[in-house]
Write a protein that binds this DNA or RNA. Structure first.
Lengths: 152, 152
DNA sequence: CCTTTAAATGAAAATGATTATCATTACCAT
DNA sequence: ATGGTAATGATAATCATTTTCATTTAAAGG
C-alpha cells in the first residue's frame, strides 16, 4: 500500500502556483494554534497582537483560497458566520454537537461502527432514488450543554 | 388515546396573545401555497403581486415570530440566507439532499427503519458522554443533482 | 357601531458579515 | 538586484437581517 505523503498547506499552495506570503503564514498559523472552528473575525482578533497590519479582507481572501484548495474546511452552524478548520486526516471526518444557547461546539469522530456503515447505506439508496451524486454529508446534533441547561 | 386537535397557525397566534393581521395572513398563506423552503425575499417577491404594500421588515418579523412559536421551521443550508417551512406533522421530520451547484433541495422522510433507530442510539450515547441535552439533529447530504452533474 | 390602546406595520436607517475595487507592495524567477 | 505579477490593505459596496420611530390597525369594551 502506497503511503501518501502528508502535504502541509505550504506545499499545497506552491503546487497550485500560489505564493507563500507573510500574511498567509500568519493566518494559517493562527488556525494551527487556535484549533476549534474559528470564524474570520476570531482569526482577525487573534492576529491583531502579533500582526496588526493584516486586514480583514486578506483573511477572507486567504480563507476562501484555502477552502477552495481543500486546506480548510468550511462549516455553517447557523449562527450567522461561517466557521473554518484545518482539513487533515486527523480532523476528517467528524460530526458535531452544538449548544443552541452558547454556541459551544463539540466534534466527535468516535463513531459507532454502525454509524459509518448505515450512512453509506442511506447514501447509496438516496443516490439511486433521487439521481444525485452525493459528495458529503452533515450529521449535527443540536441541544443544550450542561452549563446552559443548568443556568435556566 | 386522546387525539390532539391540530392547531393551525391562527390558533397558535391567538393562544399566545398575538393578533391576526392581514400581513400575517398573507405571509403564512404564501408559505402554505409555495411549499418548499423559501427564504424571506422569496416570500416577499411572491407577495408583491397580491399585497405590494407588505414590507420586507414585516416578513422578517412575522417569520421570526412564527419560528419562535414553532409555526415555522428554520433551516440553514449554507447558501447565505435562512430558509423556512411550515412545521406540521406532515413536514416533520425529514432530512435533505442539497445540490451544491444549483441549490436544489430534496427532502425525504422515507427513512430506513434503521435510520431512525440508529440516530436515537447515537443521540443517547452522545448525551451521556458529553453531558448534553440533545433536542434535534440535522442529517443532510450534499452533492450534485443529475442536471448539474451532466452540464459539466 | 364607535372609541380606545397596545400591538403591529412600513419606511428608512443601522448593522454585521462578506465581497469588490484599485492603488500600492512584496514574492520569486531570472 | 530587478521586473512582472500576484497579493495586500484601505475603502467602498453588497446583501441579508435588525432596529428605530412615527403611523396604522386589530380586537376589547361600551
Amino acid at each position: 500500500m502506497r503511503r501518501k505523503r502528508i502535504r502541509n498547506w505550504e506545499n499545497r499552495l506552491r503546487e497550485e502556483g500560489y505564493k507563500i506570503t507573510t500574511p498567509r503564514k500568519s493566518i494559517l498559523s493562527v488556525f494551527e494554534q487556535l484549533g476549534g472552528h474559528p470564524n474570520a473575525r476570531e482569526v482577525f482578533n487573534n492576529l491583531s497582537s502579533q500582526s496588526p497590519d493584516i486586514g480583514l479582507t486578506t483573511i477572507y481572501r486567504t480563507i476562501e483560497l484555502c477552502v477552495r484548495l481543500g486546506i480548510l474546511k468550511k462549516y455553517d452552524f447557523g449562527d450567522g458566520h461561517s466557521r473554518y478548520e484545518i482539513a487533515n486526516e486527523k480532523t476528517d471526518h467528524h460530526h458535531h454537537i452544538i449548544c443552541e444557547k452558547c454556541s459551544k461546539i463539540i466534534e466527535y469522530r468516535d463513531f459507532l461502527d454502525e454509524e459509518t456503515t448505515l450512512i453509506k447505506k442511506i447514501q447509496n439508496k438516496l443516490e439511486k432514488k433521487y439521481d444525485f451524486n452525493i459528495k458529503q454529508h452533515v450529521l449535527d446534533f443540536y441541544g443544550l450543554c450542561k452549563e446552559c441547561s443548568d443556568n435556566k
